[in-house]
Design a protein around this nucleic acid. Structure first.
Lengths: 336, 336
DNA sequence: GGCGTGGGTGTTACCGTTCACAACGGTGTG
DNA sequence: CACACCGTTGTGAACGGTAACACCCACGCC
């Protein structure tokens, strides 16, 4: 910067002013400075800048160590949103959502001097870990829809998405709709379950007990196989539901696999709905009807919250929608 | 730091020495300083540190804007490796791999002051964009196996993986093995194609012309449907191959879908092999035989290269392996 | 006993910015 | 004509660390 100042014949402070678009700089000197910058190929040192402004212009993201669809898409969308406002994104992963691991990541970001942290997890432990940090550092949690206190939130409206899926099945004439849940320590999983049961009850239907699952295809497969086995058992046979709403696409994929293997035809005998709209779900067999969260919007909203959190402004509405993707794994209930 | 020095009754430089594990500091003062640090809850400002050391301890990662399996897994593995050595990871995505976009990301990281950049792309354009940057900033490319010059590389041995897949099919008695390629601007896609054709020739088999594809399930579906249609055509019917090696799991999924829809049984009539071992591929219908790259190793190797690049040391061997995952989409060729 | 040696410590400069404040010249006003 | 004011510019001091160097002292050696 000193060199630039010398070449342009001004003080270093004037160079700084030009760089920061300060209004009180005459057009003539501004031009001189800019040409000196171009001539010298100067670029401002953002570390030195961060030292004095106490702003690094970067935000930390804590996410999971796995390729789960939702978190991955959220990270990408968030990065896009951030970059379009000139911020950069630093990432840290945790293998498990225990309090210690999350706090370690937060400490890491605190040391690194980020302007704020986004935690992509609707996991209970993560929520707990974050609670004590919000007064030390702006924090946005992606997942919970409202935490009160100083933690800002952004989330897909899981509840509404689950209602959409359930209503879709009800409109197709289904009355015995089973729900396979995600892991119960995830808020997302509980919201989806609630959306399902509320919608069932409002339609005057009594839901079966949901089957507890996690986010994995193998679990879906196990559950599907079990359902088929029970339905086939001679005595006290428990009939297959006519429709299953799985908490995510992986579970749905496992169910599809189990049903196909057992010769249970989807959607003729059982309709299946997933959640997430993962890559390839349009080519499962049959193509999966699912709920597609608007991750792009989530990323933007998440950044909006971050900006608000940094500025100390009140939180904006953090909920984004999800849309039905009706494909071939659901159809009108047939009499059997 | 000044406060800590005062509390401990030493100079700020001594505090700095303790923080950096400098050898020449007596056990007694070290203890005093450490207790002062604990008492004051002091944490060192890494921005100020970066200013003077000219090292930020962070590396930039340029990756694609999509949830492609390989890049995502690589990013996660890399972050893990980085964190275990105390470095942090900053990420920037590009929507398209054109030279301008990649260079913009590199400039971004240059401004941000990262110690080095990892570009996760075996895309030709990305390679070209990186060429001119390596002398300004340590660069590791994930994908190409060797670029010569100043660019360090780390990669999955795509060629060996493709050979594994092809040999697996040959050992099952298949002779008419079709390859559906990835996009030809990707080095990975070309390496896999080469592995396939070399292996075919070495087995004394004449490969059919490969079918050009990309990484998408919908493309696989289209190709599968086309193959079936051609095989069914009355005149000049071109028989289905007895096995297909798809360049990735998404393509394979699309093929599976097309075959299932047309009533072509997999693996009875056609065997299918994919590449990547994506989440859920064990529950496709049928469970997909595929090649699983060792992403965890790739992440570590990638970091090793980065460390070497930063230190100006010679590159280490960047190739990591891939293993067959034999499942149910392949079987011994049956006479028809 | 003088002297080199090396471990422990403090002093000072410097990294590359921005901020607070002062200085300057020109202009409109009482 | 003195004065306040505003736009433009420069000066010096932070910001919070590390590096280089000087210093002091105890020790072993000739």
């Amino acid at each position: 910067m000193h060199d630039v100042a010398q070449v342009a014949g001004v003080s270093h402070q004037t160079v700084s002013r030009v760089l920061n678009d300060h209004p009180n700089v005459s057009a003539a000197t501004r031009a001189k400075v800019q040409s000196a910058i171009a001539q010298l190929g100067y670029r401002r040192n953002s570390v030195a800048r961060a030292l004095v402004t106490r702003r690094t212009g970067s935000i930390g993201v804590v996410t999971e160590d796995s390729a789960l669809h939702g978190p991955t898409m959220t990270l990408i969308a968030l990065e896009n949103a951030a970059r379009s406002t000139g911020m950069s994104v630093s990432v840290a992963t945790v293998t498990q959502w225990d309090v210690a691991a999350v706090q370690a990541s937060l400490e890491h970001f605190l040391d690194q001097g980020v302007d704020g942290v986004v935690v992509i997890a609707s996991h209970d432990e993560a929520v707990r870990a974050v609670q004590g940090f919000a007064h030390r550092l702006p924090v946005v949690m992606v997942g919970p829809s409202d935490l009160g206190g100083e933690v800002y939130t952004a989330a897909v409206n899981q509840y509404a998405g689950a209602r959409l899926a359930t209503r879709h099945l009800i409109e197709l004439g289904h009355t015995d709709i089973l729900h396979v849940t995600g892991p119960s320590v995830w808020l997302d999983a509980r919201s989806r379950a609630r959306g399902w049961s509320d919608t069932m009850r409002q339609a005057g239907l009594t839901p079966r007990d949901p089957v507890p699952g996690d986010w994995k295809a193998s679990t879906g497969y196990g559950i599907g196989a079990e359902l088929v086995a029970r339905a086939g058992a001679a005595s006290g046979a428990e009939p297959l539901p006519t429709a299953v709403f799985a908490a995510n696409d992986q579970l749905a994929l496992g169910l599809l696999h189990a049903f196909a293997e057992a010769g249970v035809r989807v959607p003729h005998e059982v309709s299946v709905v997933g959640f997430d709209d993962v890559e390839g779900s349009a080519h499962f067999f049959p193509p999966l009807t699912t709920v597609a969260p608007d991750f792009a919007a989530l990323g933007r909203r998440c950044l909006d919250q971050m900006v608000a959190a940094i500025a100390g402004e009140p939180a904006v509405d953090g909920l984004v929608g999800a849309a039905m993707r009706v494909r071939s794994s659901t159809r009108r209930r047939s009499e059997r």
